[in-house]
């Protein structure tokens, strides 16, 4: 399913990161960074909520609007029952849709918001996504202070939140089109190799997007996947070529942009629902606005599992959604 948009723009973005992300290669692009993991709250879950609220506040300041001017708040995170987003929505008081597609949540939110704006159901909306390393480790893995060895293919969850303000005002970056992905399960059971879980879903949605829009892959200056990591990236390249005959050239992975694997202990790279928004709303948004990049296809990837199904040894399904972002006034 591919949607074409004529009048949807990301006017502004707000990003809040944790200390590790701030020390990474694109740290200077974030609007605000905290130096400890508690973000001046008393728990990691509250810290995650804090990061969403902060990113929305920063965003509202940038566009000089108040909460009352916003029609809809779409948000999602990785915590059970979306608690981080729920509490942020409770504090903000804007009509709220909670969305979940694991680490593909950010683009899912953008697609929902864009469709509503394109069809004039709403004038504007804010789309937020967050993750927090410690709250995710606690929920999906081991206690944070437990130091059991990790596999090389394991990833490091991003701490932070990104918010985008969408409206039909021609300003910022254009959302040109989007493709909704399907759930793909090719039988991977290793929860420590999420790149392998998500790569086939990313490949499917890229191919679908190119077919629906009748484009070649080199139409885009950059194809950006969510959080496949260093090994997942190679799997995707290989799979894309053998299955669909497409060679990925101008291709990067958000999980490898946000951290420096040589100096930061992040194993195969970054992951988490906050990874795509921090990279896209911080770094890529900036480049598109300055026209250093013209057309970017963002493919957010998510692994759809819970700890229970992992323990029951089920195969792990993945999903990916693609959204095409364009600099303004392209020929």
């Amino acid at each position: 399913m591919t949607f074409k948009y004529n009048n949807v723009y990301i006017n502004a973005t707000g990003t809040v990161s944790g200390p590790f992300e701030n020390n990474g290669p694109i740290g200077k692009y974030f609007d605000k960074s905290y130096q400890d993991m508690y973000f001046k709250t008393t728990s990691w879950e509250k810290a995650e909520t804090r990061s969403i609220i902060d990113s929305v506040d920063i965003l509202l300041n940038k566009i000089t609007k108040t909460k009352k001017d916003i029609d809809l708040f779409i948000a999602g995170d990785l915590l059970n029952q979306l608690v981080a987003s729920n509490y942020a929505a409770s504090s903000l008081g804007i009509p709220f849709l909670g969305v979940y597609n694991a680490c593909a949540t950010s683009v899912e939110g953008l697609i929902i918001g864009s469709n509503m704006i394109e069809s004039n159901q709403i004038k504007n909306c804010i789309v937020s996504t967050s993750s927090h390393n410690n709250s995710s480790e606690k929920q999906f893995r081991y206690p944070v202070e437990y130091g059991g060895p990790k596999k090389k293919t394991a990833t490091f969850t991003v701490t932070g939140a990104g918010s985008a303000y969408l409206s039909y005002n021609k300003e910022g970056v254009k959302i040109e089109s989007a493709t909704v992905g399907k759930v793909v399960d090719l039988g991977v059971k290793d929860v420590n190799n999420m790149g392998a879980v998500m790569a086939p879903a990313a490949a499917w949605v890229i191919n679908k997007h190119l077919n629906d829009t009748k484009r070649k892959i080199d139409y885009y200056d950059l194809v950006l996947t969510g959080d496949l990591g260093i090994y997942g990236r190679e799997i995707l390249k290989d799979y894309m070529k053998t299955e669909y005959g497409i060679t990925l050239k101008n291709y990067e992975d958000c999980g490898l942009i946000i951290f420096d694997r040589n100096t930061q202990p992040v194993y195969a790279g970054a992951s988490g629902a906050g990874c795509v928004p921090l990279v896209t709303y911080g770094y890529i948004f900036n480049k598109l606005k300055k026209k250093e990049l013209s057309r970017v296809l963002v493919v957010a990837t998510g692994a759809l599992f819970s700890q229970t199904v992992v323990n029951e040894k089920s195969t792990l399904p993945g999903i990916a959604h693609a959204i095409s972002l364009e600099a303004l006034d392209l020929e």
């Binding site: 090389k152 090719l186 039988g187 991977v188 392998a196 090994y231 799997i235 290989d238 799979y239």
Partner: peptide, 18 residues
């Protein structure tokens, strides 16, 4: 794609633990 063929691709790109 068959699951087995995909498994081979994954195996090719998965590093060995030391």
């Amino acid at each position: 794609m068959e699951k087995n063929r995909y498994k081979d691709i994954v195996k090719d790109h998965t590093p060995k633990e030391n």
